[in-house]
Write a protein that binds this DNA or RNA. Structure first.
Length: 347
DNA sequence: AAAACGGGGGG
DNA sequence: CCCCCAGTTTT
């Protein structure tokens, strides 16, 4: 066992986080937790994990559930393809593995939504298999302790970190080691203001001794943010309201929204009014605007409430939703925010 | 190899 | 305002 592993496990013993998914050896629950926690903070994911385990205690229950129901429980968590993959993978397991969660790394890796990180996590946590996982914590801890300056978002960097991680792994205690390095990254070797005075590696840490903590790990890609304006037409009569489902190749695939147009700024095109003919209630300025910050874009949503005596016909795209049933549909956060404020006035 | 994919928290 | 979070899939 490497000195690094030894020190890490010594730190872990009295300092480990007590998290719900650590209390089980059930590969299904571990898988569930790992999918939920992808690019998601523990505090944000935990209530979703508890809700999913409660509603779908077994792989079979999850596989039998309709996708809509799973998406509804996922609502608000983001990266909704994770919920679709979760559903697909559960069916995969029922059909190809006879309902038993696969217990080898290559088989686990085949599951939809499971990449190298998640496969290593499940393989080690559920079955004690000797696969070192590499997540954001691992990149940070290794980059700092060993002073690795290869960019973590490069192909070469990823490969390099995976090799180092696998080398350092305590293969007889893979689960413990993998848990330990993540807890250590989350509690001590934090992205900003790491607790170097409590760190067992402080005497040898390259980042600390060479004052490179802010500089490590190295990332090269810069995020470009675009601004988008969505104009939503909240068209309703006494009992119904028009909604439609978002298509793929854009954010919020499969989620619902109101009929809309997208423009380059906050103003509605002049000809928009003609779409609604003589309707006087459509103002060219919205009554309600909400902003949503995403990683790669800023979404401005403008809502125009239009009450009609009779609604345009339903078609393959637009659905006449019953107002009272509106909460059964899955909406993006920004629509949800709007509905929280306005639903009571619309019904 | 790069871009897309949500939402929230921290500095 | 920018970065990060128990990353994976698509382009």
């Amino acid at each position: 066992m490497s000195t690094f592993s030894k020190k890490l496990l010594q730190w872990y013993n009295p300092n480990e986080r007590n998290l719900p998914w650590k209390q089980t050896n059930d590969a299904y629950k571990i898988w569930l937790s790992e999918i939920i926690l992808q690019q998601t903070r523990v505090a944000q994911g935990t209530p979703y994990y508890l809700a999913f385990v409660k509603k779908y205690p077994t792989i079979s229950k999850l596989a039998k559930a309709p996708l809509d129901e799973i998406l509804k429980l996922w609502e608000g968590l983001g990266y909704y393809s994770r919920a679709r993959n979760l559903h697909q993978a559960s069916i995969q397991i029922m059909e190809k593995h006879n309902g038993h969660f696969p217990n080898t790394y290559p088989e686990i890796l085949q599951l939809k939504g499971v990449g190298k990180y998640t496969a290593a996590a499940i393989a080690s946590f559920a079955y004690g298999l000797p696969y070192a996982l590499v997540d954001g914590n691992v990149y940070r801890v290794l980059a700092r302790v060993f002073g690795i300056e290869i960019p973590i978002d490069s192909t070469l960097g990823k490969k390099h970190f995976e090799e180092i991680a696998q080398q350092l792994l305590d293969k007889d205690n893979a689960a413990l080691y993998n848990q330990a390095i993540m807890d250590f990254g989350a509690l001590v070797c934090k992205p900003s203001n790491p607790l170097c005075n409590q760190c067992p590696f402080s005497s040898t840490c390259i980042a600390l001794t060479q004052d490179k903590i802010q500089h490590l790990p190295v990332k090269t890609k810069k995020i470009t943010k675009t601004t988008r304006h969505f104009h939503y037409f909240v068209i309703h009569n006494t009992a119904h309201i028009l909604i439609q489902q978002r298509m793929q190749n854009d954010i919020w695939h499969g989620l619902f929204e109101f009929p809309m147009i997208e423009t380059i700024d906050h103003t509605l095109p002049n000809d928009t009014k003609s779409i609604f003919g003589s309707n006087k209630k459509l103002s060219t300025t919205s009554s309600f605007s909400f902003k949503q910050e995403l990683t790669h874009q800023t979404i401005h949503a403008h809502f125009y409430e239009i009450k009609l005596s009779s609604l345009p016909r339903q078609n393959t795209v637009v659905i006449h939703a019953i107002k009272r049933d509106l909460t059964k549909y899955v909406f993006p956060k920004i629509i949800h925010s709007y509905l929280q404020v306005r639903l009571i006035y619309l019904t």
